[in-house]
C-alpha cells in the first residue's frame, strides 16, 4: 500500500456508539490532488467518518491515515494542513460572520486577508452582519470562506452546498476546481448526485456504514447501462428482437431503451439497419447508480424506483 500518494486512506473502519453500530467496515481513499466524492443517504455514516478523519471521534481498531499521519494522535499537527466545513454550521449568534471567519482561520494557523476578502466577494457575503441574522446558506458560506481562504493541502467538506442557491453552487464548484489545479486534495460528502458527478474524479458510495462501491466515475459507469433514444422513420420498426436492447419504450417515431455498456457496439451496428434519423445517448447518472444500491431498500419501503 502506498500511503504517501494518498491524502486519505481508510480500510475497514468500524465505530460504535454504545450498542449502535455506526460504521461497519468502511473503506475510503482520496488520491492526492484529486476530488473524491463521498456519497450516501442521511444517517449512513458520512459525518461520523469525517469526524474520525478529523480526530474528533476515535476509530476502533483500524488504521486511518490522513496526510500520512494518525488523525487522533497527530491532530494538532495535521489540522494545520486540513480545512474543514461542517455539515451543519453553527455560529455564535452575537458575533458577525467576519469575526467568525477570522476566529476559525486563526485557530488553524493564520488569516490570509486578501484571499478572505476575495472569497467574501465571490460568495457575496456581508461580513458585518451578526450571525443571528444569517440564513442557513449564509452560515454555510462563512464556513466555506474560512476553509477556502486557507492554504490547506486537504479540504474536507461535509455537504458543503446545502442551503446554497444555484449561483453560489457554481461559485463553489469553481473554487473547488481551482483548489484541484493548485494541487490540493478534496473530500466532498454529499447526497446530491449531480454535484458529485459534476466535480469529482473518484466516488465512494456507502450504505449503513459500509462501502458498497468505489472507483473513478468512468469505472462506475461501466456498471451501468447507457440510455439511448432514437428517432426512426419507420414507425412499424420493432427493436425488441435486437440482442442487448432492454427496457424498450416506443412513442410514435421515438424509441427509448437501455444498453449495457459492453453491448453498446453490437447494438449500434444492428441499429444502423433501421436508419435512425437522430440519436441521443445519455450517460448513466449517479442517481441511477445510487438507486440500484438503495433500490431494494426503497422498494421495500413502498417507494417506486424508475
Amino acid at each position: 500500500m502506498t500511503t504517501t500518494s494518498l491524502a486519505v486512506d481508510v480500510v475497514g473502519l468500524r465505530k460504535s456508539f454504545g450498542r449502535q453500530r455506526a460504521l461497519d467496515g468502511l473503506d475510503l481513499r482520496v488520491e492526492t490532488g484529486q476530488i473524491a466524492g463521498f456519497l450516501g443517504p442521511n444517517g449512513s455514516g458520512k459525518s461520523t467518518t469525517i469526524r474520525i478523519l478529523l480526530g474528533l471521534l476515535r476509530a476502533e481498531a483500524t488504521t486511518v491515515r490522513v496526510l500520512g499521519g494518525d488523525p487522533w494522535n497527530d491532530a494538532v499537527a495535521l489540522h494545520r494542513r486540513i480545512a474543514y466545513v461542517p455539515g451543519d454550521v453553527n455560529l455564535w449568534p452575537n458575533l458577525t460572520g467576519g469575526q467568525a471567519i477570522d476566529i476559525l482561520s486563526r485557530l488553524r494557523g493564520g488569516v490570509n486577508t486578501t484571499r478572505r476578502d476575495e472569497l467574501l466577494q465571490r460568495f457575496d457575503l456581508d461580513p458585518s452582519k451578526k450571525a443571528r441574522a444569517y440564513s442557513k446558506g449564509n452560515r454555510q458560506k462563512v464556513a466555506l470562506v474560512a476553509a477556502l481562504a486557507s492554504d490547506a493541502e486537504l479540504l474536507i467538506l461535509d455537504e458543503p452546498t446545502s442551503g446554497l442557491d444555484p449561483i453560489m453552487e457554481a461559485a463553489f464548484s469553481a473554487c473547488i476546481r481551482e483548489a484541484r489545479t493548485e494541487g490540493r486534495s478534496v473530500l466532498l460528502s454529499s447526497h446530491i448526485f449531480a454535484e458529485v458527478e459534476n466535480l469529482c474524479d473518484t466516488v465512494t458510495i456507502i450504505r449503513l456504514g459500509k462501502t458498497v462501491e468505489s472507483g473513478t466515475l468512468a469505472e462506475l459507469r461501466h456498471l451501468r447501462r447507457t440510455t439511448i433514444s432514437v428517432i426512426l422513420d419507420d414507425t412499424t420498426a420493432d427493436l425488441s428482437p435486437v440482442p442487448g436492447v432492454n427496457d424498450l419504450a416506443m412513442d410514435g417515431q421515438r424509441a427509448t431503451f437501455t444498453v449495457a455498456d459492453p453491448d453498446l457496439g453490437l447494438v449500434l451496428a444492428e441499429l444502423a439497419h433501421f436508419k435512425p434519423r437522430a440519436l441521443v445517448s445519455t450517460p448513466p447518472s449517479l442517481e441511477e447508480l445510487f438507486l440500484r444500491h438503495y433500490g431494494t431498500e426503497l422498494a421495500a419501503n413502498g417507494v417506486s424506483v424508475p
Binding site: W92, N94, L95, T96, G97, G98, Q99, A100, I101, D102, I103, R106, L107, T113, D126, P127, S128, K129, K130, A133
Partner: peptide, 23 residues
C-alpha cells in the same frame, strides 16, 4: 434597525480565552 458589527475579529478575540471573554 439591527446594527451591523465589525467585519473582522481583533487579535485578542482569536484566542480561546479572548473569545470566551467576548462571548
Amino acid at each position: 434597525p439591527d446594527r451591523p458589527g465589525p467585519s473582522a475579529a481583533g487579535r485578542f478575540m482569536m484566542t480561546p480565552f479572548g473569545l470566551a471573554l467576548r462571548l
